[in-house]
Design a protein around this nucleic acid. Structure first.
Lengths: 131, 131
DNA sequence: TTGCGTGCAAAGGTTTTGCATGGCA
DNA sequence: TGCCATGCAAAACCTTTGCACGCAA
């Protein structure tokens, strides 16, 4: 992906504006549809795929049968990665930054010989509002 | 799901025999097809859905775009819960007991106000053999 | 001009739903 | 007998692919 097409520019602008939010391709599509400047679904999937590969977006799957979610991570090189939490009651998806999770990750890697991938992993439980 | 149909009985028997293995609906379907006693895909999806709700099966998502995986967990007593780890490469399912995970759980509960359910949660990553 | 990007249409695969039939209690 | 379960067919859904046209460099 080399060209700066107007679709790519518009997409990046929108993604930066929705930092820390979880969005799907359908969300993006709806946004531009509402703006009166629709972008083809195919194009979105292809752009998003490249952006994930470039490290600008992060992709994760909370629920099969619902669309994949993406989150802008942009330029945050060596920061603590997000931990994804999904509330089993209200279905809400939370992003938290947690050093303790990193500690556990290192521990499991060292002691249990298993390399946890925080991008793929989702912690299920009950959120504050639903308690 | 109240009736003890022969499909349900056969399914449960098969599931118990494949403890701790990850299988898809397609796998189950293929098994019974090979046995000469095919079970309809629809029926399998409906049975499996109920079994997940009953807590007999656990559902995993390894990769969107590939089928959902299920694992028999049966009636596990309420002991110290396992942490479930699934290798994204070989698909193996590991159960570990990890105090560090419990620490993190408490930390997230106290600091981030989210109650992690370790029974539902699966850590995805790469196992020792696949590194 | 070159060749990547776009987007419509259609395919791909998994899961769900409608509906008539069949089986458990 | 009264329901629930079954399973075929078809829809629903997200995502990918084929292909012709358009646009960036």
């Amino acid at each position: 992906m080399k060209y700066k097409t107007k679709q790519r520019v518009a997409l990046l602008e929108y993604l930066e504006a929705t930092r820390d939010k979880h969005i799907t391709v359908a969300d993006i599509r709806a946004h531009f549809e509402a703006q009166g400047e629709p972008i083809g679904t195919t194009t979105l999937y292809r752009q998003v795929e490249d952006l994930v590969r470039e490290g600008v977006l992060r992709k994760y799957i909370v629920d099969e049968n619902s669309a994949a979610c993406f989150a802008y991570v942009g330029e945050q090189p060596t920061e603590t990665p997000f931990v994804h939490c999904k509330c089993e009651r209200c279905g809400r998806l939370l992003h938290i930054r947690c050093g303790q999770f990193e500690d556990m990750q290192k521990h499991i890697s060292g002691e249990h010989d298993f390399a946890v991938d925080p991008r793929r992993t989702v912690l299920y439980g009950i959120c504050a509002d639903c308690k």
